[in-house]
């Protein structure tokens, strides 16, 4: 579901108002249609994210960007939460940080993330988050699923072992490239990203071979062929430009 506050939800509130509120004791001001995440980042406060990527629609799914809001019992995902006047937001309370760590640990148990031999070693958002949050070991048992690598595409390969199901590939393919080659099959712990009718990527009829999915992938799940271990550095400069230039009014297939 594409929630685009600027276009849909609050169009009736035009023009958007300026609000002042607090993030981590700091007084900030922002438009009411800017997410807490984006306001925090503008003010140099970093909040960990995995499914969020500037230029793509929000999913609110990785739950790493949760923050505490004073007076609200629930933790709120900052990527899809909008500020209110005088709101008090705490981005890194002990509670929030400990949950973030646990979520990250769960992601590490879910699939076989072996950094040492990964093409994205050293350039991986998942790895960076683990370092940032100080995860030195994983408390939960590893699930060790048997997942395959699909290297049938002439230029790219997908290693499901390293996928965190952020669905950036699905979104960029749909929203920016407009091909919708990627989607996600199954549900729950058995979900997996697929191309077309769950066929080898190389046999996809719809893939344009643009490689945007590879560049937005936070981990080594999607990579360019010919890149060896630790060599896959993702380039994303194109995203804001393409988003601006191709800016679709609404998605026929929202997430």
């Amino acid at each position: 579901m594409k929630i685009h506050p600027r276009k849909n939800v609050r169009s009736d509130l035009n023009p958007s108002r300026l609000l002042t509120f607090r993030i981590d004791e700091r007084v900030v001001s922002a438009h009411e249609d800017e997410s807490i995440l984006s306001v925090a980042r503008q003010n140099g406060i970093s909040i960990p994210t995995l499914c969020h990527l500037d230029g793509l629609s929000e999913r609110g799914a990785c739950r790493l960007c949760i923050v505490e809001v004073k007076g609200v019992a629930r933790l709120l995902p900052s990527c899809v939460t909008f500020p209110r006047q005088d709101m008090e937001i705490i981005t890194a309370s002990e509670r929030v940080v400990s949950y973030r760590k646990k979520i990250l640990e769960l992601l590490f148990t879910e699939r076989n993330h072996v950094c040492a031999v990964c093409v994205s070693n050293g350039h991986c958002e998942l790895q960076n988050l683990a370092v940032e949050l100080g995860i030195s070991h994983v408390r939960y048992p590893y699930l060790y699923p048997r997942l395959a690598v699909d290297a049938s595409h002439s230029r790219f390969s997908v290693d499901h072992n390293r996928c965190v199901l952020c669905l950036r590939c699905v979104r960029v393919c749909d929203e920016i490239e407009g091909a919708h080659t990627w989607d996600i099959m199954g549900r729950g712990i058995t979900s997996r990203v697929i191309t077309d009718l769950n066929q080898p990527w190389g046999s996809s009829e719809t893939c344009t071979g643009c490689g945007k999915c590879v560049q937005v992938c936070p981990t080594g799940a999607l990579s360019e062929k010919g890149k060896s271990v630790a060599e896959m550095i993702k380039r994303r400069q194109f995203l804001p430009y393409l988003q601006m230039m191709r800016g679709r009014q609404d998605e026929s297939w929202p997430k």
Binding site: A116, V117, V119, A148, A151, D159, S228, V229
Partner: peptide, 14 residues
């Protein structure tokens, strides 16, 4: 088995 060939130097050096 099942891994891409280009990972082999890194895997086997482990």
């Amino acid at each position: 088995e099942g891994r891409p060939y280009y990972e082999m130097p890194a895997i086997t050096e482990r």
